[in-house]
């Protein structure tokens, strides 16, 4: 079978295009060739964290791959059967543990055997899902597609020292079921959590204070979580919204030279945008769900659908990758100005 060609220079998010392609390729047994990886970036080609995801994918699917070097603009990937088992991966430069999982978790869900995966690196990294988002927002929805996933945070890891550790147990699904999330329904509870590592407690208090003044979410000392297991200073602010349709979490990572108030303002803006729409699935969650839903549809689960906020260019590109691997495009219907329905059959 000639490999499917993915043009990495069009659309957004070169790294995500590679991770989505890897997940779909392994789960569906379709080889691919991606060219023009991050072509328009200042530092084009594969970055180290992309290479780690690629190598993890090679490991779980005994793939034959070319272009597996930092700076590579083109990767060819031909997966073998995905094998469950025990794996351990480490991500350098505090690259995100959750992004590596984005590439391999959907495939492990359709493997022949259960898996135990340990990944070391950043658990709360910029431009990546936080561990809490993975655990409380994404994994419960993946479980509804079939199989069972258990994720445990063993150690926190922040930029730049990393040192975090996440353990994942995956029991593959015998058969897959469709996912259908159409309504958010009533918001049942909201909660803000500020994680601080080796930083003054005041950082957490100021963030929570800012969230209360902007969103009216009350807090007490239990909302501040001081952790001592990470080697370097770090901070993450997580805003949970639990509704009838499920849980979504909006996280922002604190950085040096970024005030607690700025961190809180960024997180609050995401929440406000989410609450302005009536969609149950926020933009980040939508991005993470497309590939698993597409795999379920390809495995005969029937149509999966969810309602989310209008698609970012990131999500549009992701939909195009799905269409390329499945040979059919997802349906995207507008539900008024503030939400769209995304479905794949």
């Amino acid at each position: 079978m000639p490999p499917l060609h993915i043009n990495g220079s069009t659309g957004e998010g070169g790294g995500q295009m590679l991770r989505s392609s890897l997940a779909l390729s392994m789960a569906l047994g379709v080889p691919f060739r991606i060219t023009g990886i991050r072509a328009n970036r200042e530092k084009p080609g594969l970055m180290r964290q992309h290479l780690t995801a690629l190598q993890a994918a090679i490991a779980i699917s005994s793939a034959r791959a070319e272009g597996t070097a930092v700076g590579s603009r083109e990767v060819t990937f031909a997966p073998g059967p995905v094998r469950g088992g025990s794996y351990r991966f480490a991500v350098g430069t505090a690259g995100s543990v959750t992004l590596v999982l984005q590439a391999i978790l959907p495939a492990l869900l359709v493997a022949d055997e259960p898996s135990e995966v340990v990944i070391e690196g950043g658990t709360h990294a910029r431009s990546a899902p936080t561990f809490e988002f993975l655990q409380h927002a994404l994994v419960p929805l993946l479980a509804r597609l079939g199989g069972a996933i258990d994720v445990r945070l063993e150690k926190h890891g922040f930029y730049p020292a990393g040192g975090g550790r996440v353990a994942v147990s995956v029991s593959p699904a015998a058969t897959m079921s469709p996912l259908m999330i159409e309504r958010r329904g009533e918001v049942r509870s909201t909660r803000a959590v500020s994680i601080v590592s080796k930083l003054p407690f005041d950082v957490a208090r100021r963030e929570l204070e800012a969230v209360r003044s902007r969103l009216g979410w009350s807090f007490d000392t239990r909302n501040a979580r001081v952790v001592d297991d990470a080697p370097c200073p770090g901070n993450a602010l997580l805003l949970y919204i639990e509704s009838e349709g499920g849980t979504d979490i909006f996280g922002v990572i604190g950085e040096r030279q970024k005030s607690s108030e700025r961190v809180a303002a960024e997180a609050c803006a995401e929440v406000e945008s989410y609450l302005e729409s009536d969609a149950p699935i926020g933009p980040h969650l939508a991005d993470q769900l497309m590939v698993p839903c597409a795999i379920a549809a390809a495995k005969g689960a029937g149509e999966s659908s969810f309602v989310t906020q209008p698609l970012s260019s990131h999500s549009t590109t992701n939909s195009e990758i799905v269409a390329a691997f499945l040979g059919r495009a997802p349906t995207i219907e507008s539900r008024g100005a503030k939400s769209v329905r995304w479905s794949i059959r």
Partner: peptide, 21 residues
């Protein structure tokens, strides 16, 4: 101390690049 992570250290930095392995 933990604050060493907030400083630039040339040898550590050399091994910490996104595009250099």
């Amino acid at each position: 101390g933990p604050d060493r992570w907030e400083r630039w250290r040339p040898t550590v930095s050399l091994c910490q690049q996104d595009d250099l392995l």
